[in-house]
Amino acid sequence: MDIRWDNLGEVSLASFGVTIAVVVLFSLAIAAWSRAGGLRGLRGGAAGGGPARVAAGAAVLCFAACLAVAAYGIDLIVPG
């Protein structure tokens, strides 16, 4: 019998790392998007000016990072 504990360890570490990274990024994105006031912040409208624009930009970056991880996931699922 050989139970590959090292493989289980790798799987645990990888799942932990990826999940925490995605959840933290997505949560930050939601918080930042909300602070920016949604699309208005992105356009730098009257709502908040500079800080709102920064928050909106951060949100977009975080969402994009999550999308990239999801795309990598699809790449892993689809063989070849």
């Binding site: 933290v24 997505f26 949560s27 918080a31 909300s34």
Partner: peptide, 28 residues
């Protein structure tokens, strides 16, 4: 494994969004 990872992830998700309006958090 899944229980442990989800537990920590859930704690963090609530911690990070605790000052954000509930309806926006839920929609996101």
């Amino acid at each position: 494994l899944a229980c442990g990872v989800a537990l920590i992830a859930t704690y963090l998700a609530y911690k990070i969004t605790q000052r954000t309006a509930r309806h926006r958090v839920d929609r996101g």
